[in-house]
Amino acid sequence: MQTRITKNSGWKQFFQTVVGRAYPRVVGTMRDLNWLFFDIFMPFLTMVGYVYVYRALKAPEEYIGFVVLGSAMTAFWINILWSMSSQLYWEKEGGNLALYIASPTSMMAILLGMATGGMLATTTRALAIFVIGSLVFNVSYALVSFWTLFGVFVLTMVALYGLGMMMASLFLLLNREAWHLANFVQAPVMLFSGFYFPVRAFGFWPGMVASIIPLTLGMDAMRQLVFPSGTLIGLLTPHVEVLILAGLSVVYVLAAFFMLRYMERLAINQGRITDRLS
């Protein structure tokens, strides 16, 4: 007797794919506890380095807090670069990409699953880094509005992972240069987004240009909402930043959708889905 296989389609299939692709990213963190060392302890060491730079420069204590916040948010940027943007390149290397393309589901759903799983797993890491850093360096916060802070964080994540999905479609065409490209953009973004200092240090317009990376405005708003002197060092008011982040979220997610369709077709036409040119 044959078992009849029922296949989902439409939104049900889309949702199932999202859950399916997010699953290994979340469950993986439970099964392999190495990340506790490598993904928390290692960023913690980097954070310690920057904290002592400020201590050596005799910076106000609030700057230690900026480093702690920036180090926690670094986890998301690293995740975007190496586990979102470059992911399709890794999948090509591992031989999974062709299977994704051949499967009767949407690549957008796969990317959304990657983003959702990555976001959940990385939030745990970022939170751990934030809590440990705050406790070790005795950082004090003065929360202005929890709900505004929560809204800023959620919008920053949506816009950031939208950007990650868009970049993933670009990386679809790349081979060995993907690794170098990700390596290349890591430091400039950490510089211009102001991971360890207020972005206003660059001046208003350079800060606005840097705001195409959602973390720039996200962190600027968070600094204003949790540190006593935050409003004095902000680029824009948190409410304006929330509006811009909402706009960026829509733009990046839509751009990811159209670019993925275009790039997927281009990659198939140019025969780049299965090549492993190393």
Binding site: V53, Y63, A187, L191, Y196, F197, F202
Partner: peptide, 8 residues
């Protein structure tokens, strides 16, 4: 990154 930290 360090230059800006120093500058600030």
């Amino acid at each position: 990154i360090l230059i800006v930290m120093y500058l600030v």
